[in-house]
């Protein structure tokens, strides 16, 4: 049985899709069988970031409505044999996602893959709540600025109340992925500090991804940053995050600071 991860944030534009693709590719490079699922019905993007936009035939909504089999909708990555994409529909809207349909699809994927990574749409409505519904692990993507942090806090509240795991009385495994971290702006005090964000959200840190042109470049060529430029700073940060997901203990480095300085913060548990 594989593990289901939801990549979520509340706020849009913080890097959910980029992180989904990068972590998916990083985990698949370790040999695991991975599927990335786009839940952003109507505004899909994961296919572009994965470079599979010209190979989409069937999508998540087709599978849910019974128009296609799951195997017909899954797209295998051309570069990585163990990486798959389940695209969202661009022409439908989120009302086409039914709780029963999503449950069935996730259960089938869980049986066939080691990791099922669900890319949540922004917001707290139907699409986002269905994306998180069956997750075992949540990755909360946050930018170091106040509106993103507050939205993430809201999402953590939903993760603790609206998911199957929460309804069973279990604790959702939540991790913070701090993205678009800019050392220069942090130096000037224009951004929230890492420990401020951790203090507000009080969930363990999975990684800090530096703001970088490499990410934009990777999106434009249609490749996860962990595939297109695997020696770049953001790629290395994503690889570390993937290893932490696999249970390894690696100290977190704050970009722009000496390595290891931040190690004491890693693994900090929720209050």
């Amino acid at each position: 049985m594989g593990k289901v991860i939801v990549v979520t944030s509340g706020k849009g534009g913080v890097g959910k899709t980029t992180s989904t693709a990068a972590l998916g590719a990083a985990l698949a490079q370790g040999g695991a069988k991975v599927v990335v699922v786009d839940f952003d019905v109507g505004l899909r993007n994961l296919d572009l970031v994965m470079g599979a936009e010209r190979r989409v035939v069937y999508d998540l909504v087709n599978v849910i409505q019974g128009d296609a089999k799951l195997t017909q909708a899954l797209i295998r990555d051309k570069r990585l044999q163990t990486l798959y994409l389940l695209p969202a529909s661009q022409t439908r809207d989120k009302d086409n996602l039914t709780p029963e349909g999503v449950e069935k699809v996730i259960a089938a994927l869980r049986k066939n893959f080691d990791w099922v990574i669900c890319d949540s749409p922004a917001g707290i409505e139907r699409g986002a709540t269905l994306a998180m519904r069956h997750a075992d692990i949540a990755i909360v993507v946050t930018n170091p600025e106040v509106s993103s942090v507050r939205d993430s806090d809201r999402i953590i509240g939903l993760l603790d109340s609206k998911t199957v795991k929460a309804e069973r009385g279990e604790q959702m495994d939540k991790h913070l992925l701090l993205t678009r971290y800019d050392p220069a702006r942090a130096e000037r005090g224009d951004m929230l500090k890492v420990d401020d964000v951790l203090e507000i959200l009080s969930i363990p840190l999975l990684g800090i991804i530096p703001e970088s042109m490499d990410v934009l470049r990777a999106s434009n060529v249609g490749a996860p940053v962990t595939l297109s430029d695997d020696r770049s700073a953001p790629a290395l940060a994503y690889f570390d995050a993937a290893r932490r997901l696999n249970g390894e203990t690696i100290p977190v480095t704050v970009p722009g600071e000496k390595r290891g300085f931040f190690g004491k913060f890693f693994g900090r548990k929720a209050a």
Binding site: D153, L158, D160, A270
Partner: peptide, 8 residues
């Protein structure tokens, strides 16, 4: 005993 999150 849990943090009270935004929106709660």
């Amino acid at each position: 005993t849990q943090p009270v999150r935004s929106g709660q």
